[in-house]
Design a protein around this nucleic acid. Structure first.
Lengths: 240, 240, 240, 240
DNA sequence: CATGAATGAGACTTCATTCAT
DNA sequence: TATGAATGAAGTCTCATTCAT
């Protein structure tokens, strides 16, 4: 086990960050900040309740404006939803790719690094919730499908595929079908992230409780053993 | 892996068809067939629209009956949903438990058997979408959260945990945290199944296209290598 | 206090008497008894739930027949209701008048006798419940108003008026307006009877609980003192 | 009796009319008047149709607003009903308590005052029908039973009991069971009020017609004679 | 006559959206 | 711009009544 799940600070899932406008030039500042505040509030609510379950009035309330004002900025709940998805996603990807490009160590360590970053930057933030929403609602908003595919699905797949390819190229990993491996790598992490926003937020008796850090390290352990040409040599003994 | 996911014929999601009982009064025959017809219609609609989005009247319509008739058989939308879950998932899990209990072969083969069955019976049918629905909407229907946890999540976890435990007990698998391993085992299959019913149902250009059968076999390959005490002996005389 | 409320056995308000057909010539007997059984069941339910609250199906159930059968005998819920009222009332009145006509004692004692009989024969039986229903529903069934007035209101009034008149004629009672006195005499008893069928049947915390026997005797005590020319002489001292 | 029920003008049941606030924005004025308008409409409809029979939409219509608006002010039909009760009965009882607390005269006069006020404020307005509704429908609405008991039945009983107690304490009245006396005091008034809204609203031939004012004064006359330790001294020099 | 499955009008309630102020 | 009162379509569920068997 590569200490993969090291710095996993499982903070309370504080999904949303409201930008708390610190009273200055109240009127002016507010007016400019409005759209962002509305999007923040909407994100929070869509995450909590899904599209159908989020009420326009509550979005407005959380943003500190009246219902009418919401409609001044977004002509309908649908448009609001799309705006939320677009703006949340646009700032998400592209971090990982850089990490991967510059990484020097073993491909095993790179994957560990990636999955950990993934979890910390995405799994534990509103981004994961967006994925949940998308899964749930794309069929009602097909326009978003393409957008999400381009912005999230493809880049993420490319990222993981390239790492696996790197491992294979360097003789570290067995040759295996890339996309499928990438799927197996990402799924448990994404799945866990999503669960935190659904069942994880419900008060149920006797649910299955997994330790995220342990899931992550176990998953990594399993995958690396499965991927590597030879079982990873024990850390201490194997300088090579 | 022995081509575990071999005969994966991705047919149209075909729901169980009741063999029409020989010959009784027409009325009588309807009476008996009704629940199944309603359940089928409900499953289809829940998959399309989600729980909140599915209208009771449309369920009835699709089953070819009036609104009132639906309520003759299921006292509320929630109960209807529960019935759908019981029919599609609970029974399947129960079946899996039986298979596991009677299985004689290696634990590796048992897991392979289980995952394949899962995929064939869930991944490939509308049943998969149920979990999507739950992920998306539990927070709005707390009672369903408890129900689904009791009826599906916990039993499924127990099923896979017990298989892993079996492998450990028999010295086939390394000792690893059960729940976390179960999570890593199930997630890619469920995740893939879910995707087929969300993004998979939307026409997008350039999406990531994985071959389900290949995902399944690759996942199994990776996991078993990861789980087993020693890398699985090469099937036929391997050199080296 | 004239021992007025003597034999007040406050049994459990067993409102309805189902005629429990003792299985003989089942088919035949049943067929003839049907209407009566239906009326009994309907009475019970109307008393419990009122007109709107009583469901046709439950009436049928209690009568041991199917919903369809009910409509074979009564073409609608309204007609059923009217039939219930008519048949219950028709057998009610006319007892008291006889008692009054033959009474020999003082008018005070006569009133006591009357109120007690009233309570036992009416206040504590379905008859009282019918009065409750009538009060509640006449406005929706004006046809019943005339009927009820003729069969119940007028005779009851006449009965009590004649007693009061008797007292006045014999110099026992002060001359007072007859109808108004009759009202004051009957109201508390009827009122109490009605309450037993509404609030009395609800599980409330901290309700006002009066002892029917005590209400009756107190009421009589008050009224007689009020009515009589001189306060009733203490029993012992006053032979004459 | 001092013509206690003197100026009983039986006018059309007129509900409180809000004096339209001087001049604000039309919208604003409506906003303030709405609750009252809705309450008025609701009272009228409840009286006509009962609780179950009154349709929310019609209440709204009569108040000149749409269905949705009603729910803007009262979250459910039950709450609407409660509000009506509070406005019409609770406030009246509270008022009575105050009168009783500050009353200086004889307890006989206090009771007279109370009953007269009651009749004028309840018996003569739609408010009386509320008790009728409760009698008829409590069993179907258990929550209302508790509410009404707490809000009306118990306070009213307490009010009258305390007056009787006052009379006993001051040596004016004979010691008698409080609750039972209170019952005998209130019943004829309430009963008469109820009748006005049921049978009284139906056109019948040959019904018993009592003069409310006369009922009231006769009832009071009888009760006070019955209650008082000695028969009330004749007002002017009575012979003998 | 009897049954009980089926119907569908209609009740309560919610909430996205509009619009007068 | 901003507000929030008002709207009314739509959804869940009930139940009196019908009718094929």
């Amino acid at each position: 086990m590569t200490g993969a799940a090291a710095a996993l600070t499982i903070t309370d899932p504080q999904v949303i960050k409201m930008s708390p406008t610190p009273e200055t030039h109240a009127r002016q500042r507010r007016k400019e900040a409005r759209p962002q505040e509305l999007l923040d509030a909407a994100l929070a609510l869509f995450v909590e309740k899904g599209f159908a379950g989020a009420r326009a009035e509550e979005v407005a309330q959380r943003a500190g404006v009246s219902k009418g004002t919401l409609y001044l900025y977004y002509p309908s709940k649908e448009e609001l939803f799309k705006a939320v998805v677009r703006q949340t996603l646009s700032s998400l990807i592209a971090e990982g790719e850089e990490v991967a490009a510059q990484f020097e160590g073993s491909s095993a360590d790179l994957l560990g690094e990636l999955l950990n970053t993934w979890w910390q930057r995405i799994g534990n933030t509103p981004a994961a919730a967006i994925h949940k929403i998308m899964l749930a609602e794309v069929r009602n908003f097909p326009e978003l499908a393409q957008f999400y595919t381009d912005e999230v699905v493809v880049p993420a797949d490319r990222l993981f595929c390239s790492c696996v390819q790197r491992g294979i190229d360097r003789g570290e990993f067995r040759p295996l079908p890339l996309h499928e491996v990438a799927h197996a790598l990402m799924a448990p992490v994404i799945f866990m992230a999503i669960h935190r926003h659904s069942f994880g937020a419900c008060p149920v008796d006797g649910g299955v409780d997994v330790d995220p850090a342990l899931v992550l390290s176990t998953h990594l352990d399993l995958m690396l053993r499965g991927l590597q040409v030879r079982a990873p040599a024990p850390r201490r003994k194997a300088p090579r």
